[in-house]
């Protein structure tokens, strides 16, 4: 009896240790590449490219950060990316939440085809749309304008946003809304006083996804901007010149590009995890 308890305890500990080790391995694989890029941004590349990388702390310098942040050619794209990312997210959430709510709550003809065509839009390869999009935006004066990028991203990201939000709203028990209705709330009030707050975690998770998608885009930004509306990823990729591969600047720009998304996800991680737990995925 006692022996069996021991062995079970041992097995339990063994499992715990194995799992702990596995978690550490997984985390190293997840984090190491990014840490290495951070290293590239603070060490001179000669120190890292030597046979044995010289990682002595005295070698660390923040020069490349100083350089980039004092360069107006780099500050512009940062501001642009922030504006575009936030505006796109707001627009996606405003239009997307309304649309998703209607799909989740109202029975009308064309509801299924609507969801289906949302999926179709998701399936379009962006590449083929570049030239016509360029023509379209230029003809309405939105080429190389932040607004042009914002509406384009909104159109591309909306379907996924709607898709996710529909399942969040469907998770809310209709009985709550019926109760509010009896209390005299109208449809609009029910929506923003009952449904939206209840779906808040899910909406936060969706919003982050929208932000990350628009913040990260490279191809559309490359084609639809030229000067005033250039975004961070385009600027970052530009450090890979034909005659001027600047690994330190590229890595620094990479870190700077990744940081806001990181901070945002870290701040909102509770919401993201809760949101995903409570909604989207129960489809």
């Amino acid at each position: 009896m006692r022996e069996s308890w021991l062995s079970r305890n041992l097995r339990h500990h063994l499992t715990a240790w194995t799992c702990g080790a596995l978690v550490i391995v997984v985390m190293v694989i997840f984090l190491a590449p990014f840490v290495w890029m951070i290293a590239y941004s603070v060490y001179p590349s000669t120190a890292l490219q030597a046979g044995v990388p010289d990682l002595s702390l005295t070698n660390i310098t923040l020069d490349s950060y100083g350089q980039l942040f004092s360069d107006p050619m780099f500050l512009g794209p940062i501001v642009n990316s922030v504006i575009v990312g936030l505006s796109t997210t707001v627009m996606c959430m405003a239009a997307g939440a309304a649309c998703a709510y209607a799909i989740a709550r109202f029975r009308f003809r064309g509801r299924q085809p609507l969801l289906l065509s949302m999926m179709t839009v998701q399936a379009i390869p962006v590449i083929v749309l570049a030239v016509p999009l360029f023509i379209l935006l230029r003809s309405v004066g939105l080429y190389d304008q932040l607004l042009g990028l914002i509406v384009t991203y909104t159109a591309f990201i909306l379907p996924l946003v709607i898709w996710m939000l529909v399942s969040f709203f469907e998770e809310i028990p209709p009985s709550l809304e019926r109760a509010a209705r009896i209390d005299g709330c109208n449809r609009l009030q029910i929506m923003y006083k009952i449904a939206f707050p209840l779906a808040a975690p899910g909406m936060a998770a969706t919003a982050i996804l929208a932000f990350i998608t628009s913040w990260s885009d490279f191809f559309l930004a490359k084609v639809l901007t030229s000067n005033t509306a250039v975004t961070l990823p385009v600027k970052t990729a530009a450090f890979q010149g034909l005659f001027a591969m600047d690994y330190t600047s590229a890595a620094t720009a990479g870190v700077i590009t990744a940081i806001p998304v990181l901070v945002l996800t870290l701040v909102a991680q509770k919401w993201i995890i809760r949101g995903l737990t409570e909604g989207a995925v129960k489809g």
Binding site: G20, L31, P33, M37, P233, A253, A258, V261, T265, Q269
Partner: peptide, 29 residues
């Protein structure tokens, strides 16, 4: 397990790295 929250938070790091940066990063590696 202890540190579960921090692990879940750090898990998000790769998600936050834009594809352009992703490409550069793997080249450096």
């Amino acid at each position: 397990f202890r540190g579960r929250t921090i692990v879940r938070v750090l898990l998000l790091v790769p998600w936050a790295v834009p594809p352009v940066v992703n490409g550069i990063m793997w080249k450096l590696i």
